[in-house]
Design a protein around this nucleic acid. Structure first.
Length: 368
RNA sequence: CCCGACGUGGUCUAGUCUGGCUAGGGCAGUGGACUGUAGAUCCACGUAUCGCCGGUUCAAAUCCGGCCGUCGGGACCA
């Protein structure tokens, strides 16, 4: 695979942006060993936005010869009060449910989880003086205002009251990157503030800027809080429109049963003929038509036109916009495809050992 | 440490001064009706140790005392 093809692989949907393509090209041209990471707070159930979007990109990165890793951010989860701020629970879930869930998600999207390094935050920090030196050096190059603005990476509103530990979180996230000598940092668009800080601060600490790749966020299935969506305020609104595990009906989880998947999609917000911010259409585009093309079969009763098959996203969108495809038929078809796609995750978590992990997790009180 | 404001269902909040019907409302949520989906609309419904402890009283969210917490201000600054 040549540089052009590798870059195309990195940029393949659902990638939303690469900071910057020029830097990435340099890495490939120099034939460098590229160390990647994507980090997660350990919290509740893994939904499609976490599992499938991550899996899709890791699969692509591996094809481009990139060395991938998943960072299990136990300290960050602790700071951000996940699982009631109970570190023991966080760490148990991290090496249990969370690691399993991500591995099976990566596999479901065509990646090889056995070649992904899983790194625990606490292991990285243990006995590492350089880590905390990095935290301080990074902090010395940030203002309080800048850190406060970046607080949205924790899923917190900027105005929301935060405790002092939470202000240490963003510099730590940047230090995670430096400590592991990463050259390609990856996340959803919601984490871009941290990566932009990493890129800005890196030269000041005489380090190379890491390339940042951000994939798009999946819409939640619920109606956006502001409808119709004001496009001028899109940046701020995204955090309220994205899939959220704390709004159960906005999300499908990787191990949901076929019945749950169908039920959640049936209840999804899906205004007829409307193609903007329509979550069902968004999921079809982002998950099922990744490259714009797929074989998408819509089963429907004869009185509504009978079965049809669509082969690219634009014709799907056109059919929906013109009212040739009813929302309910679209929902059912998307649900059917998701049921198939998630089969490996569902099967994995039906095995007694992993089913138990999932059950235990559901019983633990999840705090936001 | 001192002064002040505040602490009511998931959330925002009315009620506290002038104690007293089943603590009211908005939003969110749930169920139903209507649409071949959802939403919108209409109908119905649930949920509160009124921050904690004690006191006064026939009766306390309401009055009194103490404590805890949040926010703001002040003091301390050899």
């Amino acid at each position: 695979m040549d540089t052009t093809e590798k870059i195309a692989m990195v940029k393949r949907p659902p990638t939303e942006e690469v900071l910057t393509t020029a830097d990435l090209k340099t890495f490939f041209d120099e034939g460098r060993h590229i160390r990647h990471y994507i980090g997660f707070e350990i919290s509740g159930l893994i939904h499609l936005g976490t599992g499938l979007m991550t899996g899709a990109k890791i699969a692509d990165f591996q094809k481009a010869g990139i060395d991938c890793s998943v960072f299990l951010a136990d300290w960050h989860a602790w700071i951000n009060n996940k699982f009631g701020g109970d570190m023991e629970t966080i760490q148990r879930v991290a090496v249990g449910y969370f690691k399993e869930g991500l591995a099976v998600s990566i596999a479901a999207m065509g990646g090889d989880p056995d070649k992904v390094r899983f790194v625990m935050g606490s292991e990285l920090y243990r006995d590492s003086e350089s880590y905390w030196t990095n935290v301080i050096n990074i902090s010395k190059n940030l203002t309080l205002a800048r850190v406060r603005k970046s607080i949205t990476i924790m899923g917190r509103q900027q105005a929301e009251d935060v405790n002092f530990a939470q202000l240490i979180y963003p510099p730590m996230q940047v230090a995670d990157i430096f400590e592991q000598d990463l050259s390609l940092v990856h996340s959803g668009m919601d984490q871009r503030k941290a990566h932009v800080i990493a890129r800005e601060v890196a030269p000041k600490l005489v380090r190379e800027k890491p390339v940042a790749v951000h994939h798009r966020l999946l819409l939640g299935l619920n109606q956006p809080p502001v409808w119709p969506v004001e496009k001028e305020k899109l940046r701020e609104l995204w955090s309220q429109m994205k899939m959220s595990k704390s709004i159960p009906k906005s999300a499908v989880f990787i191990h949901d049963s076929p019945e749950e998947i169908h039920d959640k999609l049936k209840q999804a917000f899906c205004p007829a003929q409307n193609t903007d911010f329509n979550p069902v259409l968004d999921w079809a585009k982002t998950i099922l038509f990744r490259d714009g093309e797929a074989e998408f079969v819509v089963h429907r009763p004869k009185k509504f036109g009978g079965d049809i098959t669509l082969y690219d996203y634009s014709s799907l969108e056109t059919a929906f916009a013109q009212g040739d495809l009813h929302p309910l038929d679209l929902k059912t078809a998307v649900a059917e495809r998701l049921v198939d796609l998630l089969a490996p995750a569902r099967d994995h978590f039906s095995k007694p050992k992993y089913a138990k992990m999932l059950e235990e997790l559901k019983e633990i009180k999840v705090t936001r």
